[in-house]
């Protein structure tokens, strides 16, 4: 277990995010069926489950991309249900999507500036800022931190898949968020890069104290990265605990094999 486990998962820490009874149906499909959990300051929480178990839908309900059928979400004890995604982002929450979402025609450097610029000044004052909104140096630091230095001025669309995934993750950190939700950051990433990604994520967590929730299918990756894991199956939580107990939990094994 990493040094990041400075906050215990047994409820003693302060919850940054409180999810209460979130449900979401698409017509007759009940993708999420009443999910409640807390995320504590500084932890790296893993969210796993078979394909179609509702993980991405849950993220989208938490972050305002989807309106949940019922349930509430609170950040630092304040209800945020119904806020637009950009408003949530300004409360210090950022995310990545399951499908790669960088801006292919912008360079790596510009992608990172874009990811931070809305946190500078007001909309009106940004009109009078230099093109990089004063974030050029910060973007360079982020580029080096994620070891993309040699690609700084390349169009993001020209990068390899793994490099784009790394950029996608880096973008989530440009605004200095307190809470980051990553949807399959390791999906489709090759082995060499996987190690780099995990190490970078742990470094951010250690250095900034940011809290993470990570959806991931790669068990090796998630078990070694996360301090606590929640397992979702058919839209409900079936298990929760530290990685070692989850690994041997018969319900979890059943849920994965049953599909």
């Amino acid at each position: 277990m990493s040094a990041t486990a400075r906050v215990s998962a047994d409820g003693k820490g302060k919850p940054v995010l409180e999810v209460r009874d979130i449900a979401k149906s698409f017509g007759g499909v009940h993708a999420v069926r009443g999910v409640s959990f807390d995320v504590f300051e500084g932890e790296i929480l893993g969210l796993i489950g078979p394909n179609g178990s509702g993980k991405s839908t849950l993220f989208n309900c938490i972050l305002g991309q989807l309106t949940p059928t019922r349930g509430t979400v609170s950040v630092d004890g304040q209800a945020v249900t119904g806020l637009r995604p950009s408003e949530l982002n300004h409360k210090g929450i950022s995310r990545t999507f399951q499908l790669l979402q960088v801006f292919p025609q912008l360079t790596v450097h510009e992608n990172l500036i874009l990811a931070g610029q809305e946190h500078r000044g007001t909309m009106f004052s940004r009109l009078f800022m230099p093109g990089d909104a004063g974030l050029g140096g910060e973007a360079d630091r982020m580029i080096n931190f994620f070891r993309l230095g040699h690609l700084r001025d390349e169009k993001a669309g020209g990068l390899s898949y793994g490099q784009q995934k790394l950029l996608d993750a880096a973008m989530a950190f440009m605004a200095g968020p307190r809470l980051v939700l990553l949807d399959e950051p390791a999906g489709g990433v090759n082995l060499t890069m996987l190690g780099a990604l995990k190490e970078r994520l742990q470094a951010v967590n250690r250095e900034t104290g940011a809290t993470f929730v990570v959806i991931e299918h790669n068990m090796e990756f998630v078990m070694s990265l996360c301090t606590r894991i929640i397992v979702l199956a058919e839209g409900q939580i079936i298990a929760e605990g530290p990685p070692e107990t989850i690994r041997s939990n018969p319900d979890v094994i059943e849920a994965y094999l049953g599909h």
């Binding site: 972050l63 991309q65 637009r84 995604p85 950009s86 982002n89 300004h90 950022s94 995310r95 999507f97 979402q101 801006f103 292919p104 025609q105 874009l114 990811a115 809305e118 946190h119 909309m123 973008m171 605004a175």
Partner: peptide
């Protein structure tokens, strides 16, 4: 290019 991603980066798309 991508209003959903833009919005998630704090860009007030509207």
């Amino acid at each position: 290019e991508n209003p959903v991603r833009a919005e998630s980066l704090g860009i007030d798309v509207r």
